[in-house]
Measured scan of single mutants.
Amino acid sequence: LVRYRTISKIPQITLNFVDLKGDPFLASPTSDREIIAPKIKERTHNVTEKVTQVLSLGADVLPEYKLQAPRIHRWTILHYSPFKAVWDWLILLLVIYTAVFTPYSAAFLLKETEEGPPATECGYACQPLAVVDLIVDIMFIVDILINFRTTYVNANEEVVSHPGRIAVHYFKGWFLIDMVAAIPFDLLIFGSGSEELIGLLKTARLLRLVRVARKLDRYSEYGAAVLFLLMCTFALIAHWLACIWYAIGNMEQPHMDSRIGWLHNLGDQIGKPYNSSGLGGPSIKDKYVTALYFTFSSLTSVGFGNVSPNTNSEKIFSICVMLIGSLMYASIFGNVSAIIQRLYSGTARYHTQMLRVREFIRFHQIPNPLRQRLEEYFQHAWSYTNGIDMNAVLKGFPECLQADICLHLNRSLLQHCKPFRGATKGCLRALAMKFKTTHAPPGDTLVHAGDLLTALYFISRGSIEILRGDVVVAILGKNDIFGEPLNLYARPGKSNGDVRALTYCDLHKIHR
Results as ranks from 00 to 15, higher is better:
residue 72 I to G: 15
residue 72 I to E: 15
residue 73 H to D: 05
residue 75 W to D: 01
residue 79 H to D: 01
residue 84 K to R: 01
residue 89 W to D: 01
residue 96 I to V: 12
residue 97 Y to C: 01
residue 98 T to A: 01
residue 101 F to R: 09
residue 104 Y to V: 01
residue 104 Y to W: 01
residue 104 Y to K: 01
residue 106 A to T: 04
residue 106 A to L: 07
residue 112 E to D: 11
residue 113 T to I: 07
residue 116 G to T: 14
residue 119 A to N: 11
residue 120 T to H: 04
residue 125 A to V: 07
residue 133 D to R: 01
residue 135 I to A: 04
residue 143 D to L: 01
residue 145 L to T: 04
residue 155 A to R: 13
residue 158 E to K: 13
residue 163 P to A: 13
residue 167 A to F: 07
residue 168 V to R: 14
residue 170 Y to P: 01
residue 170 Y to L: 01
residue 170 Y to K: 01
residue 172 K to P: 01
residue 172 K to D: 01
residue 172 K to Q: 11
residue 173 G to M: 03
residue 177 I to S: 04
residue 180 V to K: 01
residue 180 V to D: 01
residue 183 I to A: 10
residue 187 L to M: 14
residue 187 L to G: 12
residue 188 L to Y: 08
residue 190 F to Y: 13
residue 190 F to E: 12
residue 192 S to G: 10
residue 195 E to F: 15
residue 198 I to D: 02
residue 199 G to W: 01
residue 203 T to G: 05
residue 205 R to A: 04
residue 205 R to M: 01
residue 205 R to T: 04
residue 206 L to T: 05
residue 209 L to F: 12
residue 211 R to E: 06
residue 212 V to A: 06
residue 212 V to P: 10
residue 214 R to M: 03
residue 217 D to T: 06
residue 219 Y to C: 13
residue 224 A to I: 11
residue 225 A to L: 03
residue 226 V to I: 12
residue 230 L to Y: 10
residue 232 C to P: 01
residue 239 H to Q: 01
residue 239 H to V: 01
residue 242 A to E: 01
residue 245 W to M: 01
residue 245 W to Y: 01
residue 247 A to P: 01
residue 251 M to K: 04
residue 253 Q to L: 14
residue 256 M to H: 12
residue 258 S to V: 09
residue 266 L to R: 01
residue 271 G to Y: 02
residue 277 S to K: 03
residue 278 G to T: 01
residue 279 L to Y: 14
residue 283 S to L: 01
residue 289 V to D: 01
residue 292 L to E: 01
residue 296 F to E: 01
residue 296 F to V: 13
residue 301 S to T: 15
residue 302 V to K: 01
residue 303 G to C: 03
residue 304 F to K: 04
residue 307 V to I: 15
residue 309 P to Y: 01
residue 310 N to L: 01
residue 311 T to V: 01
residue 322 M to I: 03
residue 323 L to P: 02
residue 324 I to K: 01
residue 326 S to H: 01
residue 327 L to N: 01
residue 331 S to V: 12
residue 332 I to E: 03
residue 334 G to K: 06
residue 336 V to G: 03
residue 337 S to C: 04
residue 341 Q to G: 10
residue 342 R to N: 04
residue 343 L to E: 03
residue 346 G to A: 11
residue 351 H to S: 05
residue 358 R to L: 03
residue 361 I to P: 01
residue 361 I to M: 08
residue 362 R to N: 07
residue 364 H to N: 13
residue 365 Q to H: 14
residue 367 P to H: 08
residue 370 L to D: 01
residue 371 R to N: 06
residue 374 L to D: 01
residue 377 Y to V: 04
residue 378 F to S: 06
residue 378 F to C: 13
residue 382 W to P: 03
residue 391 N to C: 03
residue 395 K to P: 03
residue 397 F to E: 01
residue 403 A to I: 01
residue 406 C to P: 01
residue 408 H to N: 03
residue 409 L to V: 08
residue 410 N to F: 09
residue 412 S to P: 11
residue 413 L to A: 07
residue 417 C to T: 12
residue 420 F to I: 03
residue 421 R to K: 12
residue 422 G to T: 09
residue 423 A to I: 10
residue 423 A to D: 01
residue 423 A to G: 06
residue 425 K to S: 12
residue 434 K to E: 01
residue 437 T to C: 07
residue 438 T to K: 06
residue 439 H to D: 01
residue 442 P to N: 02
residue 442 P to D: 01
residue 445 T to K: 04
residue 446 L to N: 01
residue 446 L to H: 01
residue 447 V to T: 02
residue 448 H to T: 10
